[in-house]
Amino acid sequence: YNKPEPQTTCIETLNIVTPRVRPEDCSIGLLPRNHDKNRCMDVLPLDRCLPFLISVDGESSNYINAALMDSHKQPAAFIVTQHPLPNTIADFWRLVFDYNCSSVVMLNEMDAAQLCMQYWPEKTSCCYGPIQVEFVSADIDEDIINRIFRICNMARPQDGYRIVQHLQYIGWPAYRDIPPSKRSLLKVVRRLEKWQEQYDGRDGRTVVHCLNGGGRSGTFCAICSVCEMIQQQNIIDVFHIVKTLRNNKSNMVESLEQYKFVYEVALEYLSSF
């Protein structure tokens, strides 16, 4: 595999090669009507990477704070977003439905103080705007809560329903840059791979979110992409993968610790491949 460059320069180099984001690059997220849809105004999705929601009659904005991200082998394989705010939960489920997403990966803890509420039904069904989300099943495997939902757009019943896997990773404490276990995060990646293989022939998109759609989400997307690279080419090039992600969103891997963790998980994956 490609040997990493000296650790002290990795993030510095990434910062140099990551394009500088100008306000005009994020003009849609900066529109006054969209301000209350953003958790943080510091890092907004680029206009060119936005997944627009399908317009609803009478709606003034089809914006959601999210960005389309390529994996190593599939364009727009991921949609990276923030934990839904109370006023964007309906938009979140519309995103999942409109973009035919077969999985949701949740990497942050719920925290009422930060308006990180539960956005799914427990053992029932619930409508979030036009999207009906029906609970199907749930199981817990160590650090992963795996839920299955059936969703449909009540405004467009002719579109049918979708089955969505929701993987809530509870092994990543809020105060840590990286999770304590490589093995348990790798288990999330493998669950995702298995579901895509069985359910959608590996073509479905995955929504990945953390608190603000930043470092944790980018770290997870990077790990998934490096695992694909190992499968296809038997090499590890973390720098290329992270640079590609940060070209679309500058906070995708935020710290040296997260960058190193991508390598460590990749080596763990390679040893079991």
Rank of each mutant, 00 (worst) to 15 (best):
S271G: 13
D36P: 11
L30D: 00
V80Y: 00
C26Q: 05
T244I: 07
D42C: 04
G160C: 12
P179T: 12
G160K: 14
N108C: 13
L95N: 06
D70V: 01
P121N: 08
N34L: 02
S137P: 13
E228Y: 14
V208D: 01
R48L: 06
D111T: 02
W93R: 10
H209I: 02
F261N: 10
T124R: 09
K73A: 15
G201I: 08
D36Y: 02
C10G: 08
L30H: 08
D25F: 03
Q198C: 08
C101A: 07
Q82D: 01
Q118M: 10
N247H: 08
C227K: 04
G58L: 08
V43L: 05
I241V: 12
M229Y: 11
W195F: 11
Q7A: 11
E122Y: 06
R162T: 07
S225N: 04
F92P: 00
G201E: 07
D159H: 08
E134P: 05
R216F: 02
D42M: 09
L267K: 13
E254P: 00
P45C: 13
A76S: 08
F78A: 03
E264S: 06
E193S: 14
K187F: 06
T13C: 10
I236D: 10
D159W: 09
S225T: 04
R202T: 12
I178G: 15
N234Y: 11
E228F: 14
E5R: 04
Q258I: 03
K194A: 13
F92T: 05
N234H: 15
G215M: 04
N153E: 15
N100W: 11
A90K: 10
C127E: 15
H72N: 14
G160E: 15
L245C: 03
K243M: 12
A67E: 05
D141P: 01
L107E: 03
A112M: 08
L115V: 03
L115C: 06
R150M: 06
M106P: 00
C221A: 08
F78T: 02
S55Y: 09
R202W: 01
Q158I: 13
R183I: 14
A266S: 14
R162H: 02
V208A: 00
E109I: 00
R162A: 06
E12M: 06
V105N: 02
F239K: 00
M117T: 09
S55L: 13
V265G: 09
V105H: 02
L68C: 10
I163W: 01
R156S: 12
V136K: 11
S71R: 12
T81L: 02
I11S: 12
P157Q: 13
N146L: 15
T124C: 14
P121V: 05
L14C: 07
I223C: 09
M69V: 06
M229D: 04
P121Q: 05
C127G: 12
N153K: 13
N212V: 00
H240K: 15
R48A: 04
S60H: 07
S137N: 10
I79H: 00
T8I: 09
Y199C: 14
Y169F: 12
P19C: 02
C127Y: 15
